[in-house]
Design a protein around this nucleic acid. Sequence first.
DNA 1: AATGAATGAGCCTTCATTCAT
DNA 2: GATGAATGAAGGCTCATTCAT
Lengths: 230, 230, 230, 230
Amino acid sequence: MDASEGDAGHKRKTSWKKDPEAVRRDILHIATQEFAAHGLSGANINEIARQTSTSKRMIYYYFGDKEGLYQAVLEGVYATLRAREDDLDVAGLEPVAALRRLIEATFEAHVTAPHFIRLVMIENIHNAEYLRKSEIVPRLNRSIIDKLEDVCARGKAVGLFRAGVDALELHWLTSSFSFYNVSNRATFSTSFGTALYSEARQAALLERLVDMVLASVVIGYEPQSWNAPV
Amino acid sequence: MDASEGDAGHKRKTSWKKDPEAVRRDILHIATQEFAAHGLSGANINEIARQTSTSKRMIYYYFGDKEGLYQAVLEGVYATLRAREDDLDVAGLEPVAALRRLIEATFEAHVTAPHFIRLVMIENIHNAEYLRKSEIVPRLNRSIIDKLEDVCARGKAVGLFRAGVDALELHWLTSSFSFYNVSNRATFSTSFGTALYSEARQAALLERLVDMVLASVVIGYEPQSWNAPV
Amino acid sequence: MDASEGDAGHKRKTSWKKDPEAVRRDILHIATQEFAAHGLSGANINEIARQTSTSKRMIYYYFGDKEGLYQAVLEGVYATLRAREDDLDVAGLEPVAALRRLIEATFEAHVTAPHFIRLVMIENIHNAEYLRKSEIVPRLNRSIIDKLEDVCARGKAVGLFRAGVDALELHWLTSSFSFYNVSNRATFSTSFGTALYSEARQAALLERLVDMVLASVVIGYEPQSWNAPV
Amino acid sequence: MDASEGDAGHKRKTSWKKDPEAVRRDILHIATQEFAAHGLSGANINEIARQTSTSKRMIYYYFGDKEGLYQAVLEGVYATLRAREDDLDVAGLEPVAALRRLIEATFEAHVTAPHFIRLVMIENIHNAEYLRKSEIVPRLNRSIIDKLEDVCARGKAVGLFRAGVDALELHWLTSSFSFYNVSNRATFSTSFGTALYSEARQAALLERLVDMVLASVVIGYEPQSWNAPV
DNA sequence: AATGAATGAGCCTTCATTCAT
DNA sequence: GATGAATGAAGGCTCATTCAT
């Protein structure tokens, strides 16, 4: 019933020249999609195996069990997102521009990483049980905070930022609307329509959010949004 | 072997003397907890039946199947939250106080309705498939928007609010941080510590959020937050 | 006793008129054979189900899991053997005859209860883990000891038995050779040939064992065995 | 996920610098414990490999398959026990002392060879299928019989032993209680308590068994046991 | 309106074993 | 001799669901 491999199709069960790392990546890639789509209990190991170039048995060989695979997937998406954050260089920008850039980048990063969003939602359903077990994830999260702290420090040093501005809170705030914008799109659309999710409205929304944060952080900043009707 | 499902160790429940509506409510109450705790695929009909005062058969009798039960649960939590919103009366408050009140109420409502949050997360995992099917839910969502629109209209009428202020965006914004504050607590804490979730910090956070929104909405509002170090 | 209900030898999957107790007994009957034949890990639930008039699913319905089924089987064979002991009435016999009768009955009981023997062996391999869990088994074991104590008391009262004769030790002793006679037949035969297991030699062996025990217990008893060459 | 079998968490064992015989002994040593502990079907090749200084592949290299390994283990424990019997020298003792010595030695040997006992039990569960296949084991079993026959011959020659005394039966009898004393300790204790297995009671029990056998074998021997209350 | 018994499908996992190097 | 990678088969167990009464 599963494993209809034998068709003349293109399941290339031939000729992978012993590349364990590729097999591992292949499994992880498919599993990421499946766990993101259906959650931990909803995902199906048989289905993951079917889409893979290898067999169900190999999943257990490399990842131990379903939870092990899920945890590897979780670590994978966290690592990917944090790697993107690392690539972001704002050290050369002056504080306000840097902050604006960080908020915009975070917002965009969430929009373009739906798997990450879904897996974090799923992980929260599980009360972060697997994230907590992970040894790799906690290490990944300094980078973004470090960047924000650097920007804040510079902003305060030149008297631009308010004295109480806190990098962690700023990160929380930026994350909250960036995450929600993706995570709750389905229910929000169902309840209130899809207007907010058009490309134009998303751009306007982002501008408004940036504006709002800057107004909170930067002394004397005059908010520009909402001055004119939508 | 902990007596899950139909192993032959049977029940001896006090009989509820035939009160169909009570039975229905009982099932719904237990099911809400189970679906909120484990999601749609993760929840277990046997487990729900076990905790119920009635039998598994009755669940099927009243709700058809697992998805029917889930949908009923979903409609239940939406109805409960919206009922709370209806109870909120800001018509007598002047615009700025009213807006402040609405934001604070929304924030608190999310904190005190974790089941709702979790079920909305779960429903988003399912792309709002069941919410979309519901005929009752869309009707529930006018109330909060109506209230916000009323406040905005009054605020603009007296020249306090910026002309472009939009009730729907305002609701989206308020919801985003209120929701995220609960939904992502587990993963955020794991990554960045639990500092932000102490009672004191939560209160400060809320004040800052209100401050920030008001600064965006109200002409000439001077933000007070972040002026002093945390 | 072996419930050969399936007369005419067809799998009568039709027309059992809802008799849960019969289903339970059927499963237990087949499972006893399989566990006795292959042990706990060696037995196969699918194979048990196949031989049953019902399905694998029902095994889990009635017995929870493989270990639950095994434990039920274990309790079953203990109960059967102890019931046979209960049927044995030696109260009317004078002490020496009664003791002789008890030894002979125990010896015969073991010979005719190979399933019991095998399951006890298997249970000892498992360090009596499941027997210890059983609530029913410990209660079953008074009867044989009570009988022996009664006989000993009477024997001592009339000055026939030695003062130190102990019922528990007597039971241990009787059990030891009775059990070993069946349990180790395969390896003993392989090492030393099958001579001891012919019907004639078994009868002689039993007589010798009785003779030996009586010589230990009864004052002035003159052993008759081994006086003449085998 | 506790790293059983070939999940990709690999080994880092100190290399044994190629000593094939040592590797073979190491495997056999571990396998003996595992088969004794869990039986043939219950033992796990992966688990054995894990505890070994070498890899799973080597087990197959040296022993062919699981059954081959089991058979090697079986032959090993038989050889060990028989070697101990060979070391026992009773040729210099007069017949009664020699017989007493043989019984005591057998009893003690069983107590101190629990792996042997368990493997013989397991082998009997398998109807001695593997023992029968072995070419080495049958050869090992003459020694103890030879010794007993010698003692019996000498005892009869001097008119001490009854004419019908049979070495094989004597061995069977000695083995029966010696084996049972270890093999059924778990279930017997569960049913009747552990009293009989204290050091003192074991010594008394052995003395009684010796006394009983001697009373059967030796003409005019007056049993001393059970004269006084336990 | 209610219940104990029954069920088929399929899920996660493990096992002994072999291949390619 | 030795190793990591790979595998088919099946094993125990659970799930949502329905039947018969």
